[in-house]
């Protein structure tokens, strides 16, 4: 984690409209993660999901929030997309999870490379890659197992959609979209 956003009001938008389980814009810290996961579990749309679907959605949201928490950066400028975001909604029998956060422009190419590699593997190859990563020794300085994106594709059974939008000089807003 590079640093935390600071002194911003924590607001959790649990939208009343049907189909929106969670929609949050703001800094992400451990306390926020707990609150958001509690909100997700208490959403009526979540409670009616099958056990396996509910656990998959929960697991995907955890991975998204942990990615944001570990990688978030401070941007002092104000703007609509200067903060991390996570949303979960249901629509036409599908579930969509969108997670975004500002990133340094310097990480764009490596993120695209990783996402494209994972998106272009079939299930067998993904499982082989997962096994390789889970089985190898951690490298010094690693802040995770490097399994997050693989986990997302395996559990959602869909490719990860992603976009980069320019923010201020040197920074982009990186957003992923997972559907299941």
């Amino acid at each position: 984690m590079k640093c935390l956003f600071s002194r911003q009001t924590i607001k959790i938008y649990h939208m009343p409209e049907s189909g929106i389980l969670l929609d949050y814009h703001g800094p992400v810290n451990l306390k926020v993660i707990e609150l958001l996961l509690k909100k997700l579990k208490s959403a009526k749309e979540f409670k009616v999901m099958s056990i396996i679907t509910g656990k998959r959605v929960y697991g995907l949201v955890v991975e998204c929030l942990e990615n944001i928490y570990k990688n978030q950066i401070i941007l002092t400028s104000t703007g609509p997309k200067m903060n991390p975001r996570i949303s979960v909604k249901t629509e036409n029998d599908k579930i969509y999870i969108v997670a975004g956060n500002p990133v340094s422009e310097s990480v764009k190419e490596s993120l695209i490379r990783r996402l494209e590699q994972i998106n272009n593997l079939d299930e067998a190859a993904l499982k082989t890659l997962y096994e390789h990563k889970i089985n190898r020794d951690s490298l010094p300085g690693e802040n995770g197992a490097g399994l997050g994106f693989i986990y997302m594709v395996l559990k959602s059974e869909n490719k990860i959609g992603y976009t980069f939008e320019p923010l201020i000089k040197g920074y982009l807003y990186f957003e992923i979209k997972i559907s299941l």
Binding site: V62, K133, L147
Partner: peptide, 12 residues
């Protein structure tokens, strides 16, 4: 009940 991907590596 559930474990995240990072925990999975350590459980292994």
């Amino acid at each position: 009940e559930y474990f995240n991907s990072s925990s999975g590596k350590l459980i292994l």
